[in-house]
Computed example of a mutant assay.
Amino acid sequence: MIKVHGMALATCTSRVLLCLAEKGIDYELVPVDVAAGEHKQQPYLSLNPFGQIPAFEDEDVKLFESRAISKYLASKHKDTGTDLLRSGCLKESAIVETWMEVEAHQFNAPMRTLIHQLILNPLGGSIPNEKIIETELEKLGKVFDVYEQKLSVTKYLAGDFLLHG
Rank of each mutant, 00 (worst) to 15 (best):
P54D: 03
D79C: 02
T154W: 06
K155P: 05
D79V: 11
K155Y: 06
I95F: 03
H5T: 13
P49A: 04
E65N: 13
D60R: 02
Y27C: 06
E38F: 05
H105N: 15
I2K: 06
S126I: 09
I53W: 12
F144W: 04
L73Y: 11
H77V: 05
D26Y: 01
D60V: 12
L63F: 11
P31M: 05
A35M: 13
Y156P: 01
E97N: 07
Q41A: 13
N108L: 09
Y72A: 04
E28H: 13
E138D: 15
E103L: 01
K71G: 07
G124Q: 15
L163D: 09
D33R: 09
L18S: 06
Y156I: 06
K142A: 02
E134M: 04
H164I: 11
L120Y: 13
I53V: 15
L17P: 02
P49S: 04
V16Q: 05
S66T: 13
L17E: 01
E57P: 12
N121Q: 14
Y27I: 08
Y147A: 00
I69R: 03
K62W: 01
I95K: 14
E103Y: 01
F64P: 14
E38H: 03
L157M: 14
L140S: 00
E148S: 12
L163K: 12
P54C: 00
I25Y: 04
I25A: 03
R15A: 06
A158T: 10
L63G: 09
F161S: 09
K40A: 08
I53Q: 04
N108I: 07
V61R: 04
I127Q: 11
E65L: 06
R15E: 12
N121R: 09
E136I: 10
T135I: 13
H39T: 13
K142F: 02
V102W: 00
V153D: 02
S66C: 05
A8R: 14
E130D: 12
P54F: 10
S152H: 06
T154P: 08
L137R: 13
A109C: 05
E148P: 01
K91W: 14
Q52I: 11
M1L: 13
V146K: 02
P31K: 10
S126W: 10
N48D: 04
Q117M: 11
K139G: 00
I2A: 02
I2M: 14
T135A: 05
A158C: 13
L90E: 10
Y147Q: 00
E101Q: 10
L45K: 05
K40D: 07
A158K: 01
